[in-house]
Design a protein around this nucleic acid. Structure first.
Length: 223
DNA sequence: GCCAACGTTGGC
DNA sequence: GCCAACGTTGGC
């Protein structure tokens, strides 16, 4: 079950012990051997993936029931938690998980409202705890229970995020999409933004250029 | 390892 | 509520 959001009650730093020992590959859940650089005349693939420092994370601000459980978790819900901090549990997609595993304390992420009347970017949060085991994968009663995962070899991770601030104005998807289309034509900063090129990913990286451009929109008139 | 069937995301 | 896009699963 892919990206599900809806972080939950925060325990600001409950499990600190578990973490480093995740052995598996860094990409997509499947490792490809490094590209051979020997092929005459061919440029070798970069051996490391780009280092991302900014993020966009999606969650649903409106009530929706999954197995009788409401998965609603909007930015106001994060803000209302103790320390305005929660764990971003329930991600069940390998790419999204792998991006969370790359996150570092102090980095910023946009809080994106999805699957709702008014989709778009609502505010900004800060990563306050790096990836650790998502306990909900072992909880049979949890919506995001994963019977195929064991405590010995957990599949899924989460990070803790803290509300930083609301956008000065809500930046609607509609506007971002229009800019994306323009930028695709004229080479602007949103030409390749993951929100549209990898639309269904619930945890996405942003380049600094993309992040800063989106941030600058809050000081401009809506399109 | 291919690929068709299936399930989910998420805008509209 | 529809349905296109696309990730995942499982047969072979």
């Amino acid at each position: 079950m892919p990206p599900k959001k809806k972080p939950r009650v925060s325990k600001v730093s409950a499990n600190s012990a578990i973490e480093g020992k995740e052995k598996t590959p860094a990409a997509g859940g499947k490792r490809k051997a490094a590209a051979p650089d020997a092929k005459a005349g061919k440029v070798p693939e970069p051996s490391v993936s780009p280092v991302f420092t900014r993020w966009l994370m999606k969650s649903e601000p409106e009530s929706r029931f999954e197995n009788g459980v409401d998965v609603k978790f909007g930015i106001e819900d994060l803000k209302a938690l103790p320390h305005k901090t929660g764990c971003w549990d329930g991600v069940r997609n390998y790419q999204a998980r792998n991006f969370m595993r790359q996150m570092k304390v102090g980095q910023q992420a946009f809080f994106y409202h999805s699957n709702c009347k008014d989709p778009g970017i609502a505010g900004i949060m800060i990563i306050v705890k790096e990836a650790y085991v998502d306990h909900t994968q072992f909880d049979e009663k949890d919506v995001h229970y994963d019977a195929s995962s064991t405590p010995d070899n957990p599949k899924w991770s989460m990070v803790d995020v803290q509300f930083q601030r609301m956008m000065k104005r809500f930046v609607p998807l509609r506007e971002l999409k229009e800019l994306h289309l323009q930028h695709r034509a004229n080479g602007g900063p949103l030409r390749d933004v993951a929100l549209f090129t990898r639309a269904r990913l619930s945890v996405q990286p942003l380049t600094p250029e993309e992040f800063d451009f989106i941030l600058s929109l809050e000081d401009k008139e809506p399109l």
